[in-house]
Design a protein around this nucleic acid. Structure first.
Length: 836
RNA sequence: GCGGGAGUGGCGGAAUUGGUAGACGCAGCAGACUUAGGAUCUGCCGCCUCACGGCGUCCGGGUUCGAGUCCCGGCUCUCGCACCA
């Protein structure tokens, strides 16, 4: 170092990076300049970037929310830079039992609590620097919103898809209140531990089962996360089988019935009572050694014999008392013989009819033919009650007499045995043959069943939209006319559920008394409110039209902006929310309100952030408060770090110290841009790396691989500053753009430092030069017998001979090539393997 | 039980089509600069070995010139559904 250099005055230091100053400045400017407000009428390339709206809890924004929103925001900002007009709205899913329970706990009315929570959420969300268009914010609790939720209900009602029926609810006999399923833990009330019972109440249902086939088949053409598609397929649960009628043999009916030839027991008369069963295995009919009815099956009392009647009645009563959850968690099978027999249509043999609660009334016909030889549940039951077990399907190494220690459920390569003239058929052939054979005399028909149930939307609660129905003595059930919506949820102080088993609204005669909309006589409102999932099943339709008071969704805006271009959310909603949204969309389509039937063109499920190896929860005490991290490190660093934790679609593990690495990138970026020189030309090698980085970051963002995109930027930063060199402006300009979706505030600031005068988000995503991203020389691995022994650097287009020559010049390689090279595997540009 | 996903350094994680395993970051170690550093910069950092070298992506087999990646069998973790005939 010369004296001259040593005495140079220190360069003026660039201003230090202070995120709190930068972030406040840009948040204020975005608001003032409406940077994030989308002109919905414009937009040649509209891009609707939707994120699942949060439930505004009193605890404030969860990092999980922020993780999801940041991931969505990066995608939205990226699409904007790619030239799309991006609409990124946000709102609050603020109705529901969650809010209500919390309100009860702290003794504050939900109508007071929720706006407070929302204010806190909005404050936190704005700090995070999301590109949200706040002019379209909505809350499901706003009468201007739930007016249209009620409208949606009425459309379903009009289309014959809403109906009322008695259904069981969970009831806590100690707290004397209706419980939601999630409030029942192991068959007991989550608050007091009292075993839960079931009560039958009249409730509103939506006929989603009518749409089961379409909901299933449409899945094939959706661009969704595979795991979500699978979850939906399983939930819909299609199974193909057959219904077969079994005839009840009844000695008492002998006198009044025609005697028919019933196989071997031709003496026995046949009554007209038929039991229809559903089975996916009609091929096993010869092995059906008994029938089982669900305890609730309507034929039970008719067929029970006098000497078994007491036992049957006792069993039915016990099953009815058992709560919904407990019945499903009890593993040991129990049942009672009814005293009646049916004849097996295949063998003509009489088989006993039992009732047991392992058969569910809601599925199939509520009755099964039990084939203990080939069904695990039937095997278990038959073993417990000593019922006959017969083999009718045999694998390659079985004979017809091979004993059954367990139910044999395999079908591949198996053939029928002990099945009369069907012996030797494969399972597939037999299914068809037996159903055909029985089609006339036993009304056997192929049937498709779904495990999906109709959607119960009634909630005996306060904090939700009242179901818009009026009951009139003269006119019956009358929907509230659309021009009388909304049916406003009244402000009442006693919003707690009580022992009446009905909604708190049912205690307010001044509210539920109303003139009948049809005849004007005194009538009564429905006092239940609707399920929160109905609120969220259509909110994406409302966002673009959130400022329209006279329609639920404006038709022109809807045509332009929907279906949703990109939807990102948690897989915990893989089934319910996403299925209900699809269903409501299909119904609105069929009702002529919209011209598409699938709401979300592309859906990606994001992962979950864990900490210390576990889900974050208040009880574990491992919750991260976003405010603290943003205060200390800045929102940009926090966003960047959250995205760097792991693959966005898988989540990651939060490590408290890791954020320093993310902040380090921003510090170095800040310094690099402020120091950047304009007095020379960019280094060709650095430029090459820059173009490679542009390509990689763009590709990675497009597939939501944010963690690797960030790694690529860090890597470029390392080369940019290697050896403490001072970068050229042209080496950093594009990098600021690459960083901008992740760290929008600092990017805006540095964009101005680079001399730009408009928002970086109105610039264009940088292009890369194809010629620069491909290297002309490559480092190839040289293996000897499959083991890497050295590397050679050759032209990308090097021939095998050139590579060989270079390899043999490598002492480490030559050392291992002891004998003759017997074989050479050469993959141009990749590797060379010598087999000796 | 059924269905989905996953097992890679001390840790989070990379490896897009079978082709140099461990990119990037955290933690750690050493050094430079410094009155000081929890700032910044440089280097090292899978395991065994002084070294040559050997071993190494949950375990056991297999296919291949070559396997984290493909096939067969098993183990573990995790999420979802839980008697759906």
């Amino acid at each position: 170092m010369t004296d001259f250099e040593a005495t140079q005055p220190a360069e003026e230091l660039p201003p230090g990076y202070d995120p709190s100053v930068v972030e406040q400045r840009w948040q204020a400017r975005w608001e003032a300049e409406a940077t994030n407000v989308t002109d919905l009428s414009d937009g040649e390339r509209p891009f609707y970037a939707l994120m699942m709206f949060p439930y505004p809890s009193a605890e404030g924004l969860h990092v999980g929310n922020l993780f999801a929103f940041t991931g969505n925001d990066i995608y939205g900002r990226f699409q904007r830079l790619k030239g799309h007009t991006v609409f990124e709205p946000l709102g609050y899913d603020a109705f529901g039992i969650h809010s209500e329970n919390f309100a009860i706990k702290v003794g504050v009315h939900p109508s007071e609590l929720i706006p407070r929570n929302i204010d806190n959420f909005r404050r936190q969300l704005k700090r995070a620097g999301l590109m949200v268009d706040w002019s379209h914010e909505l809350s499901t609790t706003d009468p201007g919103y739930y007016k249209w939720t009620q409208w949606v209900f009425l459309q379903l009602y009009k289309q014959g898809l809403a109906y009322k029926k008695k259904a069981a609810v969970n009831w806590c006999p100690f707290d004397k209140t209706v419980l939601a399923n999630e409030q029942v833990i192991g068959g007991a009330c989550e608050r007091c531990g009292t075993p839960v019972e079931q009560r039958l109440l009249e409730q509103w249902f939506f006929r989603i089962t009518d749409y089961a086939g379409r909901l299933l088949s449409n899945l094939d053409r959706l661009d969704w996360s595979e795991s979500t598609l699978t979850a939906q397929r399983n939930w819909i649960g299609k199974s193909e089988g057959a219904e077969i009628a079994f005839t009840v043999q009844d000695v008492m009916a002998y006198a009044g019935s025609a005697t028919v030839n019933a196989g071997m027991s031709g003496e026995i008369a046949v009554s007209p009572i038929e039991i229809r069963v559903f089975t996916t295995r009609p091929d096993t009919l010869f092995g059906a050694t008994y029938l089982v009815l669900a305890p609730e099956h309507p034929l039970v009392s008719q067929i029970a014999s006098d000497d078994q009647r007491d036992d049957v009645d006792a069993y039915v009563a016990r099953a009815a008392k058992q709560d919904v959850v407990a019945r499903k968690t009890t593993k040991e099978k129990s049942g009672v013989f009814t005293g009646a027999y049916a004849s097996n249509p295949a063998t003509g043999q009489p088989i006993p009819i039992w009732i047991a609660d392992y058969v569910l009334m809601e599925y199939g016909t509520g009755a099964i033919m039990a084939v203990p030889g080939h069904d695990e549940r039937d095997f278990e039951f038959a073993s417990a009650y000593d019922l006959p077990i017969v083999r009718v399907v045999a694998g390659a190494d079985h004979t017809a007499d091979s004993p059954l220690d367990d139910a044999f459920v395999e079908t591949n390569g198996c053939r029928l045995v002990n099945s009369g003239r069907f012996n030797g058929l494969t399972v597939g052939e037999a299914k068809l043959a037996i159903v055909t054979e029985l089609s006339v005399r036993h009304a056997a028909v192929p049937v498709v069943n779904y495990r999906l149930h109709d959607w119960c939307i009634s909630r005996q609660r306060y904090w939700g939209p009242p179901i818009p129905i009026v009951y009139c003595d003269a006119c019956g059930t009358v929907p509230v006319p659309e021009d009388q919506l909304p049916v406003v949820l009244p402000q009442i102080d006693d919003f707690r559920p009580d022992d009446s088993g009905v909604s708190p609204l049912a205690r307010h005669a001044e509210w539920y008394h109303t003139p009948c909309p049809q005849c004007g006589k005194e009538a009564r409102r429905e006092t239940d409110v609707s399920d929160t999932f109905l609120d969220s099943a259509w909110y994406f339709l409302r966002y673009p039209s959130s400022d329209k008071g006279d329609v639920p969704f404006d038709s022109a805006l809807t045509r332009k902006w929907l279906p949703v271009t990109s939807y990102i959310g948690g897989n915990e909603h893989a089934v319910l929310h996403l299925l209900y949204s699809r269903f409501v969309t299909m119904v609105l389509h069929d009702g002529g309100h919209i011209d598409f039937e699938e709401p979300f063109t592309r859906f990606r499920a994001h992962g979950m952030i864990v900490r210390e190896g576990a889900k974050m929860s208040k009880s574990r005490g491992n919750v991260v408060n976003p405010d603290e991290y943003i205060n200390e490190w800045g929102a940009d660093a926090f966003r960047l770090y959250l995205m760097f934790l792991g693959p966005f679609e898988e989540g990651g593990s939060f490590q408290d110290k890791g954020i320093s690495g993310a902040r380090g990138l921003l510090d170095r970026l800040w310094k690099s841009v402020h120091d950047a020189r304009r007095d020379g030309s960019p280094d060709p090698e650095v430029t090459r790396k820059l173009h490679q980085t542009i390509r990689k970051v763009g590709d990675d963002i497009a597939r939501l691989s944010y963690n690797t995109a960030i790694a690529a930027m860090m890597k470029y930063m390392n080369t940019l500053r290697a050896g403490e060199r001072t970068p050229q402006v042209d080496e950093v300009r594009a990098l600021v753009q690459l960083v901008s979706p992740f760290a929008p505030h600092i990017a805006e600031e540095l964009w101005r430092v680079l001399g730009e005068t408009t928002s970086i988000f109105d610039s264009s995503w940088p292009n890369y030069d194809e010629r620069l991203v491909v290297e002309d020389t490559v480092t190839m691995a040289v293996q000897v017998n499959g083991k890497t022994r050295g590397t050679i650097t050759v032209a990308k287009t090097a021939s095998q001979d050139e590579a060989m020559a270079a390899a043999m010049a490598e002492p480490n390689v030559a050392k291992f090539v002891t004998g003759e090279v017997r074989r050479v595997i050469f993959v141009p540009g990749r590797m060379l393997n010598l087999v000796v």
